[in-house]
Every structure is written in C-alpha cells, then in structure tokens.
Computed example of a mutant assay.
Amino acid sequence: MPLTYLNVEYAQRGAVKALGARWDAEARKWFVPEGRDLAPFGAWLPAERRFTDTAVAESSIGAVQVQRRGKSLSLLLAGVADAVNRTFHQGEWTIVDVVQVSVRKHVFLELAERDSNGVVLAKANAMIWASIADQILPPFEAATGMSIGPGMKLLVRARPIFNVQYGFRLILDAIDPDFTLGELEARKREIRARLQQQDLWGLNKALDFPWDFRAVLVIAPEDAAGLGDFRAEAQRLDRAGVCRFVYAHSRFQGPGAAEEIIEAARTALTEPPRDSWRLFGLSQAAIVLALQARCRQ
C-alpha cells in the first residue's frame, strides 16, 4: 500500500507529529504510517483522499453507510495545537507567581497570577528543559542568592505550547533576576512602612541579645569538608557583631571519639578566650554536660 502523504505547513508540524505522523526526509513530506487511522489527519489529507463526515462500516450484508456526527477528539485538539503554534512563534516576557516547583531531571512549575487580595486570576503548568535550566538557573541564583521556590514572583520568558496528548503548558527559557530583586526590595519597603505605621519599627533594638546565640562553640574535625562553607557564613554574623564563633577540633568517629569531643569542648571553655564566655554569660558546666550527654546516647 502506498504511503499516505500529508499537506502540512511548517507551523503545523508539531500537531501532525503528535498525532503519529512521520517525516520522510527524502520526499521532504510528512506521511501517515501504514495501518494508522487516517481520520485524525483529515485536515492535511490530499483532496482526493480527504475524509467526509460519512464513515463506511462493513457488515455481513454488505457495505452500509453510517452517518458520523462531529469530529474525533484528536482532530479537534490538533486544531487547537495548530492555532497555538501559529500564534506563538516565540516566548513572551510574563510576570508569574510560583506556586510549586519540582525537579525530575527537567524543572516543572505550577504558576499563577493573583490579585491584591490573593485571589487566583489565572494559573498554568510550566516546564524548563534540563539543558535550559543548567543555563538560566545558576545565574539567577548567583544574582538573587535564592533558588526558585513557592511564593516568589518572577519575570520569565514563556512560550505557550499545546500537545494533543499532554495538553497545555508553558515552556520557559529565560528568567530576569533584576525583576525578582526589585520585587524583593519593594516587598521589604512595604513591610518596613507597615511596621513604622504600627509603631513597631525599631522596638527589637531595645531588647538585650539572648545569650544562647551571642557566642557559639563549634567543634568539628579539622579536615571536615563543610567546615570552610560554615566559616564563610559565620564570618558574616561575626563581622556584623551579631554572634561570635570559637572553633575547636576533634575526631567524630572511631574509638575514643566521644571522650575527645568532650575534652575539646572543655579545653575551649577553660583556656583563653574563656573571659569571652563569661562575658556572654554562658555556663561552661552546662555546655560540657550537654556534650557528654549527647555523646553517651
């Protein structure tokens, strides 16, 4: 049986492919594989092969004409896919609220738009291909200091697509970090103004610092992989005068590790700068006993 070739415009290639058509590279035409129902491809069939609204059913008596009302679902959805593909040739910059994010090789998002009262005006599923995510997410995280998550407002470049089998979704290929930074700054100013209106701004500055986070004794193996990252973050708090960190080293595994941890804590609390511990009001005995209890568990 000869192949059934289709008359497909370039913008419609996604619709016929979704229906099961194949591309003949030599003939440079789309065709319907042998044995597949031609009805879903009625809009692209040559004039001499085009289906009418009449279907022929075989019976023991002979050929009986049965009137078919309407079109198949796949044909209807193929028309929707064609309309979407013809309308949106490329992505458009769109403001969205992130409702949910999940990573399963590719990044899948649930997006929405809300009014000032939080009422959802629109929502859609979106996707970032893994190869694109590797290009656009690291610069966004470096610029904002955050990973994409629920509650964030983003400016993304989104291209709507419609698939006959999988439905409607947005494909994202760019994110503007400057928009997110501006949005965060606007939210910060809004919170500050509200606190000032309620005479709450600055009240926390009148409170004494709690003793339990003004000084921290950090005990870790000297070659611990995460110690450098911890120090980098801790130094920010130290420079701001929020918290002071004292470091001691001990093994965490092997025979005698528990006793070594206790000794490291005792040494750090009894040798210089022990005056700093007294200044912050820490109980040396309480810390050592707490570590002993922890090690015995």
Results as ranks from 00 to 15, higher is better:
190 E>L: 13
281 G>V: 01
165 Q>V: 13
225 A>P: 11
66 V>F: 14
10 Y>R: 14
43 A>D: 13
25 A>G: 11
92 E>T: 10
34 E>V: 12
193 A>G: 09
218 V>M: 05
31 F>V: 06
256 G>E: 08
264 A>L: 05
273 P>F: 00
87 T>P: 02
114 R>L: 00
85 N>K: 08
165 Q>K: 15
162 F>G: 01
288 V>G: 00
10 Y>I: 12
125 N>F: 05
50 R>S: 05
171 I>P: 02
165 Q>I: 11
262 I>G: 05
183 E>H: 14
73 L>C: 02
294 R>M: 11
172 L>Y: 02
288 V>N: 02
288 V>F: 06
276 S>Y: 07
39 A>M: 15
71 K>L: 13
92 E>K: 11
142 A>L: 15
144 T>M: 04
85 N>H: 13
174 A>R: 12
189 R>A: 13
39 A>N: 09
78 A>D: 05
185 E>P: 03
118 G>V: 03
59 S>D: 12
107 V>A: 02
273 P>E: 00
36 R>M: 15
89 H>W: 08
278 R>P: 02
55 A>G: 12
213 F>A: 09
60 S>L: 13
144 T>L: 06
276 S>M: 15
86 R>L: 03
70 G>I: 07
122 A>V: 00
255 P>K: 09
160 P>K: 04
47 A>L: 11
78 A>C: 09
41 F>R: 04
257 A>R: 05
123 K>E: 12
235 Q>W: 10
172 L>K: 00
284 Q>T: 11
193 A>V: 07
143 A>S: 13
199 D>L: 13
2 P>C: 07
188 K>F: 11
160 P>C: 02
129 W>M: 10
69 R>T: 11
281 G>Y: 01
86 R>G: 01
138 P>K: 06
278 R>S: 15
102 S>P: 02
164 V>I: 15
166 Y>S: 10
80 V>Q: 11
291 L>D: 05
92 E>P: 01
214 R>D: 10
169 R>A: 14
64 V>F: 12
101 V>K: 03
20 G>W: 00
16 V>Q: 00
100 Q>E: 11
26 E>I: 11
187 R>H: 11
235 Q>I: 12
71 K>D: 10
223 D>C: 05
134 D>V: 09
222 E>C: 03
21 A>C: 08
205 K>W: 06
27 A>R: 15
190 E>S: 14
43 A>C: 06
281 G>P: 00
79 G>D: 09
287 I>R: 00
179 F>N: 05
172 L>I: 15
5 Y>I: 07
226 G>M: 10
10 Y>Q: 13
51 F>N: 08
26 E>N: 09
108 F>A: 06
285 A>M: 08
1 M>V: 14
196 Q>Y: 08
52 T>F: 09
251 R>S: 12
74 S>N: 14
246 V>L: 04
141 E>D: 03
261 I>Y: 00
97 D>V: 00
166 Y>N: 14
163 N>M: 12
136 I>F: 08
129 W>N: 04
109 L>S: 01
53 D>Y: 09
128 I>M: 06
180 T>A: 01
195 L>M: 13
117 N>Y: 09
205 K>R: 14
222 E>A: 10
198 Q>W: 10
198 Q>A: 14
67 Q>D: 13
8 V>H: 01
99 V>F: 06
